[in-house]
Design a protein around this nucleic acid. Structure first.
Length: 325
RNA sequence: CGCGGGGUAGAGCAGCCAGGCAGCUCGCCAGGCUCAUAACCUGGAGGUCGUCGGUUCAAAUCCGACCCCCGCAA
């Protein structure tokens, strides 16, 4: 029986954990996850998805605030693990911890390493419009996704690929790949292959402002980002709206309305307006960007439910001619 | 006690601050007009104004409590 400690935090990690738990060749002796944090509308403390699953299976859970602590290392050593399996844990693992498991720390990285090292490989593959990406099983070393590769599989990206569909593919292909690699490496059947650092590319962590639409970009880029930036940060833009009759206490009668864009498509219609300018036609909503006109199909004003462009226009007809940004 | 927006006809909204006829755009129904339309005209149906309580001659509007939806944040 191969003894494993599983390091993971978000929903993405869960299918990997459950596969290891369900496989009789493995014994998951502990789960390490990020500390529970305040979340949701009332800032309630909620357990991480990985923690919830671990508790369901009566697996001990560790949630150290840092791994750079001798008492944590001691605890991890006491597990007597063959592998630490790391899937989207969310923190850099220090060398002192990497050295603990007998066979090493195995990481699942959803890209074709050395391409797209770093925290957002799947988002990047979609945003760049790549035809293929993949899942890599690798041994962790001190660098960021720089360790030697155990096994790799490629995934075809469709023209309408979203983070949701891509994550499903990554699970479908990545879970058996991980299980197989763990068994074969333990049996001495895999020789790790070093990455070619000269081919390496990095991805950065997405932040809120990455979701703000730059209307001076081409249509295709904006459309790919819509698919790549789900479920967060999404795509949003700001409408500086002039109110017809402002309340007495309000300022100049101008208010910033944040619009979340849920669905759009490049359009044949060409309004030929400056980038970011809104136009409407037959109850349809268009915004110009650098090389054409995009039709907004579904959107959501801040504080309102998501709605079709047609419904939006019934109540916000003054958006016609506005400049978004 | 994290911050904030919202709930008014089937849909999207205005009206609230400053209490006094339940409104707008669209949809729906009926009729008309047109060679024609996602066009236009006429008429119509459709409402516990989120819920409960309070103030008032009078509450969608002011006050209190509660329910629900959403954005931020994480």
């Amino acid at each position: 029986m191969i003894r494993i400690a599983f390091f993971g935090t978000p929903e993405f990690s869960v299918p990997f954990l459950t596969a290891l738990v369900d496989d009789p060749a493995f014994e998951v002796v502990a789960v390490v996850s990020q500390p529970d944090r305040p979340s949701g509308r009332n800032h309630e403390i909620v357990p991480t998805p990985v923690k919830s699953v671990a508790l369901d299976h009566q697996i001990p859970v560790l949630q150290p605030s840092t791994l750079r602590d001798e008492s944590v290392a001691t605890t991890l050593r006491s597990l007597d693990a063959d592998y630490f399996v790391v899937v989207a844990y969310g923190k850099i693992i220090p060398q002192a911890v990497l050295d603990v498991p007998r066979l090493g720390c195995v990481n699942v990285h959803p890209s074709l390493l050395p391409k797209y090292r770093g925290p957002s490989p799947m988002n990047w593959a979609i945003a760049e419009g790549d035809a293929t990406t993949g899942v890599t099983i690798m041994l962790l070393d001190a660098g960021m996704d720089t360790g030697p590769i155990l096994s790799q599989t490629s995934i075809g990206l469709d023209s309408d690929e979203t983070m949701e569909t891509l994550m499903a593919k990554a699970h479908e292909q990545g879970v058996p790949l991980l299980v197989d690699a763990l068994k074969r490496f333990a049996a001495g059947e895999i020789v790790p292959v070093a990455q070619n650092d000269e081919l390496a590319t990095m991805t950065k962590l997405l932040d809120r402002d990455d979701g703000r639409v730059n209307w001076t970009l081409p249509m295709a880029t904006i459309e790919r980002r819509l698919r790549a930036y789900q479920p967060w940060p999404g795509l949003w833009t700001v409408w500086t709206r002039t109110l017809p009759s402002p309340l007495k206490g309000e300022g100049q009668g101008e208010v910033y309305v944040r619009l979340k864009i849920h669905s759009l498509q490049p359009s044949d219609f060409r309004a030929d307006l400056p980038p970011g300018t809104v136009s409407t036609k037959n109850s349809r909503l268009f915004v110009d960007c650098s090389d054409g006109t995009i039709e907004i199909l579904e959107l959501q004003p801040e504080g309102k439910p998501r709605m079709s462009a047609e419904a939006f226009l019934l109540g916000y007809s003054d958006v016609n001619g506005a400049m978004l940004g």
